[in-house]
Structure formats: C-alpha cells, structure tokens
C-alpha cells in the first residue's frame, strides 16, 4: 500500500508532542489549580475554595491596578489602532515603490528593537519631559504603550486591506464617490473586522506589558502585571494565583474573539 508522508505517523512524534503540551500547559494548570486552594500555600493542596478570588477582589491595590491597566490599554489601543489604520492604508493603497519594504520595517520597529532598550530610552526621554513640564500622570504610560502596540494593530489591518479587492474602491469612484466617500462607504465598512481585531490585539498586548511599564511608571502607577511582579518579591499567597487566573481568563477570551473576527469573511 502506498503510504503518504504524514508527520503524525513518524517515530517519536507523539512523545515530542506530549512533552511540548506538558511544557506549555503544566505550569499554567498548576497556577490555575492553586488559585482555588483553601490553604495559604501555593504548593500544598488543602481543599477547594474561592477565598483568594474574594480576597483579591477586595484588595484595593489590585482593583486600582486593574482599573489603571484597563485605562492605559484602552487609550493606547485606540491611539495605536488609528495610527495603524492610517499606516496600513498608506502602505497598501499605493503603487509599490522602492523603499516600501523599508517602510514596513519602520512601522514594525517595536517588534525588532529589544523591549528593554525601548524601555530605557523612554525612561530617559520621559524623565526630561517630566522635569520640564511637571506632568506625571498616566499619559506617559499610554503613549509608551500606544507606540509598541502599533505593529500588533497594523498586521491584521494590513492583512485585511491586502485581501480586499481594490476594484471595489475603483467601482465606488466610478459611481461618483469622492475619495473620502469611497473610504467612508466602502473601504471602512469592509475594513471594520480588521480594525476591531487590531484593536483587541493591541489591547491585550498593552494589558500584558511589564518591562516598559516598570521603567516608565511613576510612583503609585502600578498596573496589574507590575503589581503582581511587586507582590512576588514578598510573601506569595494563592491570591497571586487567583489574579493570574482571572487575567488569563480575560486574555484568552479577548484573543478568542480576535480569532473569530479575523477569520470572518466578507
């Protein structure tokens, strides 16, 4: 019998696959399981309880950090998405020219430059501005987050634009739509799923950031991830597991919606 090559039937494949799954999910499941521990240990199971979720929820610092995280992520995601949409339009709705590839690289800079380098640069840059203006609000974090979120918002929007038939925009112009009307009535409605996907991806990326936030934030500006990092340096209770679990749930939910949206046709 002629046997087609199938990677799943190769010797050792199941072993490697299982090993990878364990590596990926075992640590996560430990965190999630001990979030429901009734004792104070993150290693010894004592019984099932929601007490750590309740405690985290009533911890004012956790609530404040969560609100701050969402505020920063919302503003940063919106700024990043607007910038990314404009960048995507500018790089796809044009005749290809020399230097276009360079422009892609330029837009995707945050994906290439090590985050710690950007963090240090922003720390120095913003500290000057802080001294000059006296302003020390969340604005710095929002702008910093917006900057590194741009490529994440850009990629799904550009993908959407590239898969869109440009004859549609030509047809709109043919039917007396000015360039702005063609954009409003044809391009934008068809681009929405890409924009929403980009927005959600940017939101999740911002929500999750530690390094840049840690460098840029002023005193009392902990986001949820930096708060958790701070807690880990002290006594560790399953409260941190509970927060992690809730965080994980939210991230998974958003990313799932992102995939559903970007898979949607039309």
């Amino acid at each position: 019998m002629a046997s087609r090559f199938d990677i799943r039937r190769q010797t050792g494949f199941p072993t490697v696959a299982l090993f990878c799954f364990f590596l990926l999910y075992l640590p996560l499941s430990v965190v999630v399981i001990f979030a429901f521990n009734s004792g104070t240990s993150i290693a010894v199971w004592e019984g099932f309880s929601f007490r750590w979720f309740v405690q985290a929820w009533s911890n004012q610092q956790v609530v404040d950090a969560s609100i701050r995280s969402v505020q920063i992520a919302s503003v940063a995601a919106v700024i990043a998405t607007v910038a990314a949409t404009m960048a995507a339009l500018a790089t796809t709705r044009t005749r290809p020219y020399r230097g276009l590839t360079f422009k892609y690289a330029f837009i995707n800079q945050p994906l290439m430059v090590p985050e710690i380098v950007t963090a240090v640069a922003l720390l120095i840059f913003f500290s000057r501005i802080k001294i000059a203006t006296g302003y020390s609000g969340l604005g710095y974090l929002m702008i910093a987050h917006a900057a590194f979120c741009i490529p994440f918002a850009y990629l799904p929007i550009r993908a959407r634009l590239e898969s869109m038939d440009t004859a549609l925009e030509t047809a709109a112009a043919d039917l007396y739509a000015t360039p702005w009307q063609a954009f409003r009535r044809v391009t934008l409605p068809l681009l929405w799923p890409g924009i929403i996907a980009g927005l959600m991806l940017a939101f999740v990326i911002s929500l999750d950031d530690v390094v840049i936030t840690e460098f840029v934030k002023s005193a009392g500006q902990d986001t949820l991830p930096t708060y958790m990092l701070g807690q880990l340096r002290r006594v560790v209770t399953p409260e941190i597991n509970a927060i992690s679990t809730a965080f994980l749930g939210i991230s998974v939910a958003i990313v799932t919606v992102f995939f559903l949206i970007s898979r949607k046709k039309t």
Binding site: D165, A167, L168, T170, A171, A172, A173, D174, L190
Partner: peptide
C-alpha cells in the same frame, strides 16, 4: 477629470459588487 466627475459608468470584469 477624476472618475467620480465623469458621467460614465463601468461594469467590471469581477463585477466588484459591494459585499456589505
């Protein structure tokens, strides 16, 4: 003149109907 200022309309090879 740009296309939106010409009293001329086109039927496209791909039809280019607006899917939304």
């Amino acid at each position: 003149l740009p296309p939106y200022k010409r009293p001329v309309n086109t039927v496209f090879q791909s039809y280019a109907l607006f899917p939304h």
